[in-house]
């Protein structure tokens, strides 16, 4: 049971999504893009939790949304690990982290 309005949660989520999107679109540094993607992921997770808290289903306390959030957090962590591995490989092979220079779509 929470007293925080759903609108506020969704607004925060939307704002964070837009922020992450902005980062993805404007940044050239691979690490920053990765971080932006994480911001987007967090916005999405927040959305899951929020909607789950405000759905009058049989499950108490927005449990389904929290389950998805748990899974997504794990998934995001994995994604960061893989992304950073790609960053390392790219840096080692191409000597750059600029996505504008890594245009061959392969390592």
């Amino acid at each position: 049971m929470t007293t925080i309005p759903l609108v506020d949660l969704l607004s925060l989520s939307g704002a964070l999504f837009a922020l992450g999107l902005f980062g993805v679109l404007t940044r050239r540094n691979f690490i920053l893009i990765l971080i932006s993607v994480e911001v987007i992921m967090n916005a999405a997770i927040l959305n899951f939790v929020a909607f789950s808290l405000f759905s009058p289903g049989p499950a108490a306390g927005g449990i389904p949304g929290q389950s998805i959030a748990v899974i997504l957090i794990g998934l995001a962590a994995t994604e960061v690990a893989v992304g950073l591995a790609i960053v390392l490989a790219l840096n080692r092979l191409r000597g750059t982290l600029n996505v504008a220079e890594a245009i061959q779509l392969k390592l």
């Binding site: 993805v24 404007t26 996505v99 245009i103």
Partner: peptide
């Protein structure tokens, strides 16, 4: 088709 991921994303 620049190959730049950002523009694809855009």
């Amino acid at each position: 088709q620049t190959g730049i991921v950002s523009s694809y994303a855009a």
